[in-house]
Design a binder for these strands. Structure first.
Lengths: 121, 121
DNA sequence: CGACTGATTCGACAAGCGTCGATGTACTGG
DNA sequence: CCAGTACATCGACGCTTGTCGAATCAGTCG
């Protein structure tokens, strides 16, 4: 699989409590974050993403999730988009390719949307 | 202002702990949620949204935030998109129009992305 | 090797989207 | 009533994106 995806974060960047209510995004951050949201901005992609996240063991092969009403090349196209946005990782095992969600990037998006930031208290 | 926006939620729908890791989205839910993500999928819109959320008192008039590198009509266009997605509300007060974020809808998106759902153990 | 299945890539096309300048609407103040 | 400011709408343009069928790549099993 491609090894030139969007490396949104350092491997072990600490999740930050994000700006939305505290400070406005920089132009660069806006570009980065917008790309992530864009990945989930299509119903078919969102369903694929959901199917993978909800699948047992947190992973699914393409054949498990390709029943979303579009052709198989289109499914592949959308999975590629999700991969490029950093939301999914794919791994080939024998005949099948298994996808799983990248929790760090998803957490990043969730954190940005956490309007009342402070979780405890 | 328009009173025919996307009514994404019942007025007092209880925020639910969402599917992503528990169950896959229905086709209809996917369409609804994708529309919200789409609203934030453009860097300019994300910056506008950020500027409003970060502004004092949680509201801002267009003149406060329109310095994002695009023309004034384009700013207006993006604000409309955000309104139609339910993420912003706009209110005219005299000469100016003030926008504020709609916390419920944003919380909905954040909840969907909360992979480990269970917040307090 | 050769046939078969799973998955990605390619090329093409229509629809959607972001952008602009020009124009229109809402409100204020002289 | 008229000039000026704030914001929205309109119409047009080019680029992006979702979709497909066809072709290609990867891996398995006779």
């Amino acid at each position: 699989m491609s090894n030139l995806e969007l490396s949104v974060l350092e491997p072990d960047a600490t999740p930050f409590c994000p700006p939305l209510t505290s400070a406005e995004l920089s132009e660069q951050d806006a570009v980065t974050m917008a790309a992530m949201f864009k990945a989930l901005s299509d119903p078919v992609r969102l369903r694929l993403f959901s199917k993978i996240a909800a699948h047992e063991d947190g992973e699914a092969c393409v054949c498990d999730i390709q029943d979303v009403g579009v052709s198989q090349p289109t499914v592949s196209h959308h999975l590629k988009k999700l991969r490029e946005a950093g939301l999914l990782t794919g791994e080939r095992r024998g005949t099948w390719v298994y996808y799983r969600v990248e929790p760090r990037v998803v957490a990043e998006m969730a954190a940005l949307l956490d309007l009342n930031c402070r979780a405890g208290t």
